Simulated assay, not measured.
Amino acid sequence: MKYTEDREFLQFLEHHKQSFSGWDFSFISVTGRVASEPLDWSYVSKAMKFIHSSKAMLDMGTGGGELLSRLRPFPEIVCATEAYAPNVPIAKERLEPLGVRVMAIQDDNSLPFGDAGFDLVLNKHESFSPTEVRRILRPGGTFLTQQVGGLDCAGINDRLGAPDYEYADWTLSQALAGLKSNGFEIVEQQEQFPVQRFYDIGALVYYLKAIEWQIADFQPEKYIEQLYGLYLDIQRDGYWDVKQHRFLIHARAI
C-alpha cells in the first residue's frame, strides 16, 4: 500500500497541526504515546532541596511556568526568565499570582538583574552564559542545571535523512569547561543516554513540532516517505526507540 492510500497514516500526520503552548507535552505524554527511560537522578528533587534553603532564586527558561509552579513553597524572592515570547504571558498568568517576577529576555549574556542578587539559579533545558550566571550569583551560591546534550535524539535525524541536530556540539565537557573558567567549582556531574520510545508516528510528528530545533523547519510533507517507512516499522514492532542525551551539573560560585 502507498502512503497516499493509507488513511490511518495520513490521520496521524494531522497531529502535527495540534496546538502546542508553554511547555506542555500532555497531548502525547499523559496519554502514554511517548515514554522516556528514567534518569539516574531527579532534577526536581535536587532543586527542591536547594529551594528550601534559599532566600533569593531565579528559574531560567521557565517555559509557561509549569514546573516552577509545582516547586513551592518558594523563598522570599523568586524570579523567572523566558526567552520564547509566546510563553511569557502564559508564565506571567501562572506565576505572578504566586509572587514570582517573570522577565522576558532576548540574550543570555545580558540578564536583567543586578550583581550577586541570588543564592540559587535553576536551569532546566535552557541555554546560559556561565559568565552571566556567575555575575548574578552570590559567592557560595548554587547553580543547578539539567541540559539536553548535543546527541539528543540524533536517531530521528538519521532515520529521516534530516540535517544534524542544531546544537550537536553541546557536550558535558564543554559546559564544565565554561563554568570552571568563570568562577565555579563543580560539585556534581552526571550524564546519561536514556531511551525515548514513540508508540505511533503521530506522536513523533507532534514532538518535532514542539521541539522545533531538532529538525529546523520540519514539515511532514518534506519527509513523507521516510515517515511512512517508520510508521510501518511501528506497526510491526509496536514502538520505535531513540536515545536521548541528558547531563546534570551542580556548581558552586567561588
Rank of each mutant, 00 (worst) to 15 (best):
D108W: 11
L122N: 00
H125P: 07
D108E: 15
D108P: 04
L137K: 01
S129W: 03
E126N: 14
F128W: 05
F118K: 07
T131I: 15
I105S: 01
I105Y: 00
D119N: 14
P139W: 03
I136N: 00
I136A: 06
V133S: 03
S110T: 12
F128C: 01
D119E: 05
L120Q: 04
G141W: 04
P130E: 00
G114L: 14
G141Q: 09
N109T: 14
V121M: 13
T131P: 00
D119A: 12
R138L: 15
K124P: 00
L120H: 03
G117H: 10
R134W: 00
G114Y: 06
A116S: 15
P130H: 02
N123H: 11
T131N: 14
S127D: 14
N109L: 00
D108K: 07
G140L: 10
A116C: 04
P130M: 03
Q106C: 10
E126M: 11
E132C: 11
I136K: 02
S129H: 05
I105C: 06
G141S: 08
H125C: 09
G141C: 07
F113N: 05
P130V: 02
H125R: 15
S110D: 11
Q106V: 06
K124S: 14
N123V: 06
R134N: 14
I105R: 02
Q106D: 09
I136T: 06
G117F: 07
L120K: 02
S110V: 12
L120N: 03
D119Y: 12
L137I: 04
P130C: 01
I105E: 03
D108C: 14
F128R: 02
D108M: 05
F113I: 04
F118A: 07
G114C: 13
F113A: 08
V133I: 15
L122S: 05
G117V: 15
S110E: 14
R138G: 08
F118M: 07
I105W: 04
H125V: 00
V121F: 07
F118Q: 06
V121A: 12
V121Y: 06
V121W: 00
L137P: 01
N109C: 10
R138F: 02
R138W: 00
D119I: 08
E126Y: 09
A116D: 15
A116L: 07
G114I: 13
V133E: 02
D115H: 12
N109A: 12
I136F: 02
K124H: 13
S127Q: 12
A116H: 13
V121G: 10
L122Y: 03
L137Y: 07
L122D: 08
E126W: 12
L137H: 01
D108F: 13
G140Q: 12
P139L: 10
D115Y: 10
K124N: 14
G117W: 02
S129V: 07
H125L: 13
R138S: 13
N109M: 04
V133F: 04
P139M: 06
G114K: 14
N123S: 15
L122R: 02
H125W: 12
R138D: 05
E132A: 08
N109E: 15
V133M: 07
V121K: 11
L120C: 06
R135H: 10
L120R: 01
N109V: 02
